[in-house]
C-alpha cells in the first residue's frame, strides 16, 4: 500500500492542518497543554517503539532532557535562537548519544535493559543537579526564539512553535507507523517474541535493537527540544525517573497498538491532571491514581483497546 493511500497516514496527515487551524480558537491554556503533551508524546512514542521490540525503557527522560538541554544551552550560551536549528540540534545530540550508548544497551534485555536505562538517565540527572552553571535544580530559561530569521511577536511566536510541534509530532507518528509495518519494525516485534529464531533466520537482533534505541532517542530528543521551546525553560526534572516513569505509564495506559494512542492518551491524562489539581489541590494524585487503576482494571490493553473493540464489533 502506498503512503498516500493508507487511511491511517491520511488521518494523521489531515490532523496536522486541523490542529493548527484549531489553535487560534482554543483557549490559550488548552493549546499550551496540547502543545506540551504532543511534545512529551514524542518521548512516549520512543517508549512505545521500544516496547514493541520487547524493551521497556525506564530512562527515556535521558534523551528527552538531552534534547531539551541541547536546545536550551545552544540558545542560552551560543545565542542560536532559530527554532529549526534548536530542534535539529536536540535530535542530533540525543541520537548521537544513543548511537554510542546503544552499543552497550543493545546487549541487554528485559529488567537489565530497564534498570540500565534508568541508571543512565539518573546519571544525567545527578550531573545536572550538581551543575551550578546550568542552574542546578532550577535549570535555566531559553532566550526568545526566532523563526527562520524572523523575530515575531510573542503571541505569533507562541502560535508558530505550537504549529511546528503539531507538524513535527504527527509527521513523526506517520514515520513510526510506517516503520512499525516495515521489515525492521516487524523484526523488532519478532525479537520480542523469539530472539533466537531471528538470529537463526540470519538477522542481527542486536543491530535491530540498536537502531530502535537510536530511533527512540531521536524521537525523545525532538520532544525535549519542543518542550523546551514551549516552556521557555529547562530543568533536570526532565531526566528524573518520575518523568521517565510517566512516559512508560502513559504508554501502558494508552496502549501500544497504534501510534496515535500515546499522543491522545498523553493529552487526556494531562487534562485529567489539570482538572484534578484544580478540583482538589491537595489530593489530586488520588484522582489520577484512581483513574489509572480503573484503566488498568477495565482496559488492560490500554485506552486504545476501546477503539479496537469498536472496530472488532463492526
Amino acid at each position: 500500500m502506498s503512503v498516500l493511500t493508507d487511511r491511517n497516514v491520511l488521518v494523521l496527515l489531515a490532523a496536522i492542518p486541523l490542529l493548527i487551524a484549531a489553535g487560534p480558537i482554543m483557549p490559550d491554556w488548552v493549546r499550551f497543554f496540547l502543545q506540551v503533551s504532543l511534545a512529551s508524546g514524542l518521548a512516549v512514542l520512543g517508549v512505545v517503539v521500544q516496547m514493541r521490540a520487547g524493551l521497556v525503557s525506564f530512562g527515556q527522560g535521558l534523551y528527552y532532557c538531552l534534547g531539551a538541554y541541547a536546545a536550551g544551552m545552544t540558545g542560552h550560551f551560543v545565542g542560536v535562537t532559530d527554532v529549526f536549528a534548536l530542534l535539529g540540534l536536540g535530535i542530533v545530540v540525543a541520537a548521537g548519544v544513543a548511537v554510542v550508548l546503544g552499543f552497550l544497551m543493545s546487549r541487554y534485555r528485559e529488567i537489565f535493559f530497564a534498570m540500565l536505562s534508568l541508571a543512565l538517565s539518573m546519571i544525567l540527572y545527578g550531573l545536572l543537579v550538581k551543575a551550578e552553571v546550568l542552574g542546578s535544580t532550577d535549570g535555566f530559561n531559553l532566550p526568545k526564539a526566532t523563526f527562520l530569521g524572523l523575530a515575531p511577536t510573542e503571541q505569533a511566536l507562541r502560535f508558530a512553535v505550537y504549529a511546528l510541534t503539531c507538524a513535527v509530532t504527527l509527521l513523526a507518528a506517520i514515520f513510526l507507523y510506517r516503520y512499525l509495518k516495515s521489515p525492521m519494525g516487524r523484526i523488532g516485534e519478532a525479537i520480542a517474541q523469539n530472539e533466537i529464531r531471528v538470529e537463526y533466520l540470519g538477522s542481527s537482533a542486536r543491530t535491530v535493537v540498536h537502531i530502535t534505541y537510536v530511533l527512540a532517542a531521536a524521537l525523545s530528543g525532538a520532544g525535549g527540544a519542543l518542550a523546551a521551546l514551549a516552556n521557555g525553560h529547562v530543568d533536570p526534572e526532565m531526566a528524573n525517573w518520575t518523568t521517565s516513569g510517566q512516559f512508560v505509564f502513559v504508554a501502558l495506559l494508552s496502549g501500544t497498538g497504534n501510534v496515535a494512542a500515546p499522543l491522545i492518551g498523553n493529552f487526556l491524562l494531562e487534562m485529567i491532571r489539570v482538572y484534578a489539581v484544580a478540583w482538589s489541590p491537595y489530593t489530586w494524585q488520588l484522582i489520577l491514581g484512581a483513574t489509572m487503576l480503573l484503566v488498568i482494571l477495565f482496559l488492560p490493553g490500554g485506552l486504545w483497546s476501546l477503539v479496537e473493540r469498536r472496530k472488532a464489533g463492526g
Binding site: P183, G185, R186, I187, Q193
Partner: peptide, 28 residues
C-alpha cells in the same frame, strides 16, 4: 513467532532471507 500469523512468520523469514531486514520504510 507465537503472536504472529503463519503468513507473518513467513514474511519475517522472507524479508531476512532477501536482506531487507534493515528496511524501515517500505512495508514488510
Amino acid at each position: 513467532f507465537a503472536r504472529f500469523t503463519v503468513l507473518d512468520n513467513m514474511l519475517v523469514a522472507l524479508n531476512v532471507a532477501r536482506k531487507r531486514d534493515l528496511f524501515f520504510w517500505r512495508p514488510a
